[in-house]
């Protein structure tokens, strides 16, 4: 049963300790980068008379994420040492993320180069195939008709030219 099947937002079961540790380490790295590199380099740190500095809230957010990330690593390690191996593995998300990144990049480039209708047709056909749909007539019809309908509706009702 996938989490989506279970419904709700994140599904009932927790994730494996290894996944938690990995997530915690990644978040900690991001938070450290934000605290010591991104925020100082790209944010005004001077303090006004009665105000906190513009960098205060970014630091607060990143700092709290850092603390929580360490806690996550700690609890994950404890669970791991205690021999718990239950929960969903997070490993397969890496493959999905790769596929998604490629698809998203292609979509953005497609929108700029070949336009909304053609890109949408490819998006619809591609994802339908991935989802296991093999009724070619249905795929073809949806990929051609739906973008045309959306594009026309956007123009007629909103006077917006989709890219």
């Amino acid at each position: 049963m996938t989490p989506a099947d279970a419904g709700g937002e994140t599904g009932p079961a927790g994730t494996t300790p290894a996944t938690d540790i990995a997530a915690g380490v990644l978040l900690a790295i991001l938070a450290l980068a934000a605290l010591f590199w991104i925020v100082p380099a790209h944010t005004e740190t001077a303090v006004g008379d009665y105000d906190v500095s513009p960098a205060f809230f970014p630091r607060l957010g990143a700092g709290l994420v850092l603390v929580l990330a360490f806690t996550l690593v700690a609890t994950g390690t404890r669970r791991h040492l205690a021999g718990h191996r239950d929960g969903r593995p997070g490993r397969r998300v890496l493959a999905e993320l790769l596929i998604w990144s490629a698809a998203a990049t292609a979509t953005v480039i497609g929108l700029q180069v070949i336009g909304f209708i053609a890109t949408s047709a490819l998006v619809i056909a591609g994802w339908m195939l991935l989802a296991g749909e093999r009724r070619w007539l249905l795929i073809g019809a949806a990929a051609v008709a739906f973008p045309l309908v959306v594009d026309t509706a956007a123009w007629v009702f909103f006077t917006v030219d989709l890219p």
Binding site: T107, L111, F116, S120, V123, I124, A125, G126, W127, M128, A131, G132, E133, L138, A142, F146, P147, V150, D151, A154, L162
Partner: peptide
């Protein structure tokens, strides 16, 4: 079927 409707939703999200 979800396999048909969800790709259409992606296009709707973009629009």
């Amino acid at each position: 079927p979800r396999g048909v409707i969800l790709p259409l939703v992606i296009v709707l999200c973009i629009a």
